[in-house]
Amino acid sequence: AVSDRLIGRKSVVMEAISPQNSGLVKVDGETWRATSGTVLDVGEEVSVKAIEGVKLVVEKLE
């Protein structure tokens, strides 16, 4: 599936994300709604860990 190619990809937070609120990330020039178990600020680099419905699950790059 097209979405499977996103797992493991680097992306950049475009709208802040917290455990309570989804935000936005940009992956390969496309904007996606995303969630995370931690707070992520605009501009942080993250990695796509999973896809749940139409949202990406991301975490901060170490």
Rank of each mutant, 00 (worst) to 15 (best):
L56H: 01
I51Q: 06
E62A: 11
V39H: 14
L24T: 10
I7C: 10
V54C: 15
D4T: 12
S22T: 13
K60T: 05
Q20N: 13
S18C: 09
G29M: 06
T31W: 10
D28F: 07
N21G: 09
E44W: 08
A16I: 09
V58N: 00
G23Q: 01
A34D: 03
G8C: 09
E30C: 12
A1R: 08
S18I: 06
V27W: 03
G37H: 14
T38K: 07
K26F: 13
G29L: 05
W32R: 03
V25W: 00
D41F: 13
E52A: 09
K26V: 13
I51L: 08
L6Q: 03
S47C: 15
K10D: 09
V13L: 03
G53T: 03
V54E: 15
S47L: 15
S18D: 07
V25I: 08
S18V: 06
P19V: 05
A50K: 08
G29A: 06
V42S: 04
V12Q: 06
V12N: 04
E15F: 06
V2F: 12
R5S: 10
L40Y: 05
V39D: 10
A34V: 02
L61F: 10
G23M: 02
L56C: 03
D4Q: 13
I17G: 03
E15Y: 07
V39K: 11
E62F: 12
V12F: 08
S22W: 10
S22E: 15
V39Y: 15
G53W: 02
V42K: 06
K26L: 15
I51G: 02
S36P: 00
E15L: 10
E44K: 04
L40Q: 05
L56A: 03
D28Y: 05
I51W: 06
S22M: 12
A50T: 06
D4E: 14
E59Q: 08
K55P: 01
L24Q: 07
S22K: 03
K49G: 03
K26N: 11
V39E: 10
V13R: 00
A50C: 10
G29R: 05
S36C: 06
L24E: 04
V48G: 00
T31R: 06
V46H: 00
V13H: 01
R33Y: 10
K26P: 01
L40K: 01
E59S: 07
T31F: 14
M14Q: 07
E62N: 12
E45D: 07
G8T: 03
R9D: 07
D41G: 11
N21E: 10
V58K: 01
E45G: 05
Q20P: 15
V54M: 14
V2W: 13
G37T: 14
V42W: 05
R33T: 12
N21T: 13
V12E: 06
E15D: 05
Q20M: 12
K60M: 05
Q20H: 12
S47M: 15
M14H: 07
V2S: 13
G43I: 01
D4A: 11
V39L: 10
A50E: 06
V48N: 01
V46P: 04
V57C: 07
R33F: 10
I17V: 06
S3R: 12
I17A: 03
L24I: 10
V27H: 02
E62P: 12
L40W: 06
T38N: 10
S47A: 10
Q20Y: 12
G23E: 02
M14A: 07
E59R: 04
L24R: 08
V12A: 03
K60N: 04
S22F: 09
G43Y: 04
T31P: 05
S11D: 06
S47R: 15
V13T: 02
S36D: 03
R5E: 09
V58Y: 00
N21S: 13
R5L: 10
V48M: 00
T35A: 06
K49T: 13
T38P: 01
G23S: 01
I7E: 03
V13W: 00
V46A: 15
D41N: 13
E44V: 09
E59N: 05
I51P: 00
E45R: 09
E15R: 08
K49H: 07
V25S: 01
K60C: 05
E59D: 08
E44A: 09
S11Q: 03
I17S: 02
V57D: 01
G53D: 06
K10F: 11
R5W: 10
S11Y: 04
I7P: 05
S11V: 15
E62H: 12
E59L: 05
P19F: 05
I17T: 04
